[in-house]
Amino acid sequence: MIDQDHGRFRSIIKGRIKKELQKYVSHGEMLVRKGKDKVAIQMPSIDIPRFRFSSGETIGQGPGDVGEELGPAQAGEKAQEHELSLPELAALLGEELALPAIEPRGKKTIQSHADRYTSVAHQGPASLRHLRRTFRETLRRQSAQGESPIFIPIKKDMRYRSWKTETLYENAAVIIYIMDVSGSMGDAQKEIVRTEAFWIDTWLRSQYKGLETRYIVHDADAREVDEETFFRTKESGGTLISSAYKLCEKIIHDHYSPNEWNIYPFHFSDGDNWSRDDTKISIEILEKSILPQVNQFCYGQVDSPHGTGEFHKDLLGHFGDKNTSLSMSRIRDKEDIYQSIKDFLGKGK
């Protein structure tokens, strides 16, 4: 009974979140990560209204003198916190942004076998005795024989839990995040990248089992780092985008055969590249080596006051906006994140 009411309540909450999703997407701080696969969302309480007094004096109890402040553990908190699992959140995102389900490339790649105890057998170890089924057999047999209602199972009645082997098909995917950490990328830009990365992760994780993530930071030089370093690193100095693309190419070559993996590189930069020559090299690597191997290459340009924003124009000039393997998006501020996610994930690739 309560499960139904709880389900109704949860769907009301989800409806509210969906309605306000754009706000939650743009303001990553409104979501708090809870453990590995949950987020907590703050939202106004959905209590049923009633006539009530505006707050005034109230009576309390305990030690304390006039003028003393009471602790923060006060009643009357307005916001409620609701937990949502990442798959639930991804489903909301998918519905609201009308994201198409991803068509994985190629054949179903990774296969695994799992044993599940869903079957019943006549033989087995005593520890797997299925008492209910055993007694049901006894009941059946003895009632058929018209025997007394004292049920004594015999060997023939015994039932045991048993397993079936199921083959699981999985589509493996990898996200390679690339970020420009040169001096011109500020904290505000990084915050945008972090928020985007969260939503991209959430969506792709709902589409693929066993998603891997790799992180590359670059200025004039590129290196692979872990997630934490990725969002924290701040370098000064210049930018050579080709360095990052070379590393990306190498990682794909060494670890992720396109036949087995769905590959998603995401590159975030303020669009500043040091030299036209390097831009030329970058485009070449992208065209010759990266684009043919990946599902989609996403370039997100996070506008910063220090950057020239040239790279977006260069890419657009070379590839046009019809290239199916390349998605580009300009993110001027937090409010653009919503649209940008739609740009990146809207192709269903």
Partner: peptide, 18 residues
Amino acid sequence: LQLYMYRDKKIVSKDFSN
């Protein structure tokens, strides 16, 4: 019983009739 009257998280009175 150490009852008190409070407003905006601050104790404002310990007077019986209040």
